[in-house]
Every structure is written in C-alpha cells, then in structure tokens.
Amino acid sequence: MAAPIDLELKKAFSELQVKMIDTQQKVKLADLQIDQLTRVQKHAKLTHTEITTLPDNTRLYEGVGRMFILQSKEEINNQLMDKQKTADEKIKELEQKKVYLERSVKEAEDNIREMLLSRRAQ
C-alpha cells in the first residue's frame, strides 16, 4: 500500500522541481527585463532634462538607423515622455508577473506539504 503513495509523492516532487526551475528562470528573465527597462527609462529622463535646458530655437536631430532627422523640440520631448510611460507600464506588468510566479510556486510547495502531512497521518 505504501508503494503507490511513494510513487505519487515522487511524481509530485518531480513536478514541483520542474515548476521551481521554470519559475526561477522566468523570474530571472523578468528581473533582467526590469533592469533594462529602468535603464531605458533613466536614459529618456536624463535626455529629457537636458533638452528642456536648451533654447527653443535649437535644432534637434533624432537618430534613425545611420541617419539623423530634424525634429522639433516638442516632438522629441513627446517621444521621450512616451518612452518613459511605456517603460513604466512594462515594469509594473513584469513585477505583477513575478508576484504571480512566486505565489504559484508557494502554492505548489504548500500542496506537497499537505500531501506529506496526510501521508504521515495514515
């Protein structure tokens, strides 16, 4: 009678191990993406602060591939603000994803603990 329960526990542990490894990889990926987005956000913010100090008649160019396009100060400021907003939204999404992943692993661990406790009670 003990053999089927042991196989069930072994299967549950192997599933948990696979889930933990997968989740850890996803969390690391999310952390890397958050770091990259914070750098993009910081770059856009610094560029925006520098541009605001320039006189309004200054000619500003946007780099596109290997060329530069003349843009108005307002257009560049709008693009930088959009970049900051987009990065901020993506960071929030990634942080929510991380919380969800960590919660799902904790739930799986709790399920296995319950399984162990029920086995010991028998």
Rank of each mutant, 00 (worst) to 15 (best):
V99Q: 12
K42F: 03
R113M: 13
K28E: 13
T86Y: 03
P4W: 00
L37W: 02
V105I: 12
I34V: 15
K19D: 07
M1F: 06
R66M: 08
E95C: 04
G65D: 10
L16K: 00
V99M: 08
A30W: 02
E114Q: 13
R59A: 09
L101W: 06
K10F: 02
D110V: 05
T49Y: 00
K73C: 04
T49K: 14
K19M: 12
N77S: 04
Q71M: 02
E109Q: 15
Q17N: 14
E109V: 10
S104I: 00
T38M: 12
I91K: 05
T38Q: 13
P4A: 09
I91Q: 06
P4E: 07
K10E: 15
L7K: 07
E50W: 02
M81K: 10
V40L: 13
L16N: 09
T49N: 14
L117R: 14
D88W: 04
I34C: 09
L29D: 13
L46I: 10
R39L: 14
E102Q: 14
L116M: 12
H48N: 09
M115F: 03
A3M: 08
D88V: 02
K106E: 15
A44M: 01
A30I: 01
L37K: 08
K10G: 07
A87I: 02
L7E: 11
Q24L: 08
K26C: 06
D56H: 03
I5N: 06
